[in-house]
């Protein structure tokens, strides 16, 4: 690496020498670091610790950083429901806090519904635009969107296992919320359920045949089963299997800190 010297006088107070040269300001290596293009293994020795710090800064999200998902979603629903209302002044503190606290309460009451029964189940049921379904597949672990190019299963909206699992989530969520949920939560859960059932009139019949899908999805013989399934280490995250398009289940729902990159 060019740049020669660490000229700062304070370096001398340390008993050991610098491990490598640190380039002067203006070196293109810094721009590469800032845009994430300079990986620690490619960095000059003097910049490797910084490259590692940048990589750590960009490390996969931890669970605590996603813990407020339910509160954020509650706020999203509230904003959608109240969009006709005049906006609150940003200077007022207490309405803000109340909404945060009520969001936390709502989260406690409906955490399972929001994170599994509501959004994810809607995604599992395939009731979303294809591009959004693909993102949901990548980030939430829901099935991939159905490609019109796929030759052999043109009519089934979702695999039987996925439908069963989603139905269980949606029906259970609605059953819980019917007794404990707010009117808005009930409405949302029912709307999701009705979408999955193919109409409000079908909800009762839809939920009547629902059984717990069980811990494994592989017991039920399915025409969709292919040799591809052996490449899925954890088939429960990909109920439909969607052959040939997703050899690596990368979008796991609970992004664990798996290291720098």
């Amino acid at each position: 690496m060019t740049g020669g010297g660490v000229s700062d006088g304070d370096m001398a107070i340390f008993p050991w020498p610098a491990r490598g040269d640190v380039p002067p300001a203006g070196d293109p290596a810094y721009d590469a670091l800032l845009t994430g293009k300079l990986l620690p293994e490619d960095a000059a020795e003097g910049l490797r610790p910084v490259a590692e710090a940048i990589a750590a800064l960009n490390a996969a999200a931890s669970a605590s950083e996603l813990a407020a998902a339910a509160s954020a979603l509650a706020e999203f629903r509230r904003a959608a429901g109240l969009s006709a209302e005049p906006a609150r002044s940003p200077r007022r503190r207490h309405p803000m806090l109340k909404s945060l606290l009520s969001a936390k309460l709502a989260a406690a009451a409906a955490a399972a519904v929001v994170s599994v029964g509501g959004v994810a189940a809607a995604a599992y049921a395939g009731a979303l635009p294809a591009s959004v379904q693909k993102i949901a597949h990548d980030t939430l672990g829901a099935p991939a969107p159905h490609s019109s190019a796929r030759p052999s299963h043109p009519t089934t909206p979702a695999g039987p296992d996925a439908a069963g699992r989603a139905a269980y989530g949606l029906c259970t969520a609605y059953a819980h919320l019917k007794t404990d949920g707010s009117a808005r939560q009930k409405a949302v859960a029912f709307r999701n359920l009705a979408t999955a059932a193919g109409g409000a009139a079908n909800v009762a019949a839809y939920c009547a045949k629902v059984a717990h899908p069980g811990p494994t999805l592989s017991g039920k013989p399915s025409s969709r089963a292919t040799g591809k399934s052996t490449s899925h280490p954890n088939p429960t995250t990909h109920p439909t299997g969607e052959p040939a398009r997703h050899p690596n289940p990368t979008g796991r729902p609970t992004a664990k800190p798996t290291g720098a990159r």
């Binding site: 950083e65 407020a68 979603l73 999203f76 959608a80 509501g118 809607a122 959004v132 980030t139």
Partner: peptide, 15 residues
């Protein structure tokens, strides 16, 4: 109004 789409945006940016 898609909650899934909003969740994608949120999960992407909140951390």
């Amino acid at each position: 109004g898609s909650e899934v789409a909003f969740s994608v945006l949120w999960r992407d940016a909140n951390p």
